[in-house]
């Protein structure tokens, strides 16, 4: 159990205690014994009530613990998701620097994560496939990175939080010489800087 989920568990327990307090107010714990009623029967009833209360209490703790655990898992998943969103590559068509719809969707998600986490900056690196000249490909990679930056600043990300560079065709993601390899290589890659620990969730 990490520190965060421990905090969540403690929070859950303290809210349970508060609920208990409320319940006690609406349901008086010490029922006055009517005159002439069998004292033993009264004792059995009180015992049963106490057992029922204990069971409710145990059930509540279990439920709260389960909820806290679900939250922690969900939070871990959210962290992973946001990390993946930030790292997700954007792909381009041959000799093009225009964003495709799939790329725009990826950048929409990234922009939301950046806006929820103002300390993060991104370095965008443009890449190309091996066709064409090395020098032109460096320029083309730079244009792809610039397209990505332009789109994200258009989504409200501050201009100084996205920097651009190009490696042209010098670092292919796939070494193959066919179209599927070329498609893997025509991409923008993202390096996250300034992320210290936990990312703040985006508002859905």
């Amino acid at each position: 159990m990490n520190a965060r989920s421990l905090v969540l568990t403690l929070l859950a327990c303290s809210s349970f205690a508060a609920l208990e307090g409320c319940r006690r107010k609406v349901t008086p714990a010490a029922t006055p014994v009517p005159a002439g009623v069998d004292a033993a029967a009264a004792q059995r009833r009180a015992d049963a009530q106490a057992a029922e209360a204990a069971q409710r209490r145990a059930d509540s703790i279990a439920a709260a613990n389960a909820a806290a655990s679900r939250d922690a898992a969900g939070d871990r998943q959210a962290q992973l998701d946001m990390g993946n969103i930030l790292a997700q590559r954007v792909y381009f068509d041959y000799d093009r620097d225009q964003l495709r719809d799939d790329g725009a969707a990826v950048l929409d998600a990234k922009s939301a994560v950046l806006q929820a986490n103002p300390s993060i900056t991104l370095v965008v690196t443009g890449h190309t496939d091996e066709r064409g000249t090395a020098e032109y490909n460096l320029a083309l990679g730079q244009r792809r990175a610039a397209t990505v930056k332009r789109y994200m600043t258009g989504k409200g990300v501050a201009e100084n939080r996205v920097s651009t560079q190009s490696l042209g065709d010098s670092q292919p993601a796939s070494s193959g010489g066919d179209e599927s390899a070329y498609q893997q290589n025509r991409r923008a890659e993202f390096e996250v800087r300034g992320a210290s620990g936990i990312l703040v969730r985006t508002r859905d």
């Binding site: 020098e135 320029a139 730079q142 244009r143 610039a146 930056k149 332009r150 651009t164």
Partner: peptide
């Protein structure tokens, strides 16, 4: 030489 960042090279 050629140089560019966000607005062409």
């Amino acid at each position: 030489y050629a140089h560019g960042e966000d607005d062409g090279v």
